[in-house]
Amino acid sequence: MTPADYRAFTVTSNNGLLREITALVKVALAESLATMFKLNTPPVDVLSLWDTGATSTSISKRLVSQLQLPPISKAHISCAGQPYESNVYMVDLHLPNGVTVKNVKVTEFENNNRFDVLVGMDIITRGDFAITNAGGKTVCSFRMPSAIEHIDYVGQSRHKSEAQAVIKRFKKKSKKRH
């Protein structure tokens, strides 16, 4: 069988369940900007947190300063704290699967001691992102580009009709609410 033509990486817990999905990534000023404005800063390897609760990718102020990134625009931020305005930078994001996502526009967050990149849905939706916990061990895998079919556990379930009835009830309720 010929291997499928996509790139992927997998994060596996050493033992037990993972509380968060992290992976090493490489971040650089977007090559397009570096060429256009004759800038040259080497890329940096940092830890990223993969966060489906983030609509877009964000980087720490420490990383902004390390890469000497100049802002290109601004964005409104809505988060658990007060609404905020953030600088927006353009970077190239080198993922562990060997794929470089070019010209990614990122906001910035205050430093923390755990990670420098929050990978948001703008990147996650460019591929397929799966988290499974068989045998009490977390395995997370990401591939780009997406497969041609979706994962849908309902279709494989012995309790398919039960699940479909719950979804139907839920849809009816949320329709009433709106």
Partner: peptide, 13 residues
């Protein structure tokens, strides 16, 4: 449309 939303408790300011 411009607003970036973060549900997690990462500090932005």
């Amino acid at each position: 449309t411009e607003t970036a939303k973060y549900a997690s408790r990462v500090a932005f300011a």
